[in-house]
């Protein structure tokens, strides 16, 4: 399941809902992304996440389908927020449930790597020098390419 929303989410409730009634699940892996207080040597007070409504949902759904093709998942979840977020706030939750931990861990990492390079979100940080658009990191592209099979 994917959700793109302005509101915060409750991790406990999300994870419980993910596995409710699925007694074949032996493990859940999750990644929680937060707003950090520093970008390099610059203090960050808050950030605003812009996205492309419509394409965001399509890309996330596509990435989730791919994860389900590659690993035997009982359930998966991506919740990504947009709008203005203060330091320490939750940005994204990715969770994967499977019978065994290997599939859950790997699929979770895959989903995070891919959404960072494909999902159309952009961060603008508030720094003491004014607003600043975050640059894409080449290490994120490299992280995503390790999952390339063809």
């Amino acid at each position: 399941m994917i959700r793109v929303q302005r509101e915060d989410f409750d991790i406990g409730r999300e994870l419980e809902a993910l596995t409710r009634g699925k007694t074949g699940v032996g493990g859940v892996a999750c990644f929680l992304g937060l707003v950090r207080d520093m970008a390099g040597d610059k203090a960050v007070g808050a950030m605003t996440l812009e996205h492309y409504p419509g394409m965001t949902e399509r890309e996330l759904a596509r990435i989730e389908e791919e994860a389900n093709r590659r690993w035997p998942l009982a359930a998966s979840l991506i919740v990504h927020r947009y709008g203005r977020l203060e330091r320490g706030e939750r940005i994204v939750l990715v969770a994967t449930a499977s019978a065994h931990r290997e599939a859950a861990f790997q699929a979770c990492e895959f989903l995070v790597d891919y959404l960072k390079t494909k999902a159309p979100f952009w961060k603008q940080e508030e720094t003491p020098d004014g607003p600043r658009w975050v640059d894409a990191e080449s290490r994120d592209d490299e992280a995503a390419t390790r999952w390339t099979t063809d």
Partner: peptide, 10 residues
């Protein structure tokens, strides 16, 4: 048609 810089979500 949408034009945008490299994405920075997650």
């Amino acid at each position: 048609v949408a034009l945008f810089p490299p994405v920075t979500g997650g």
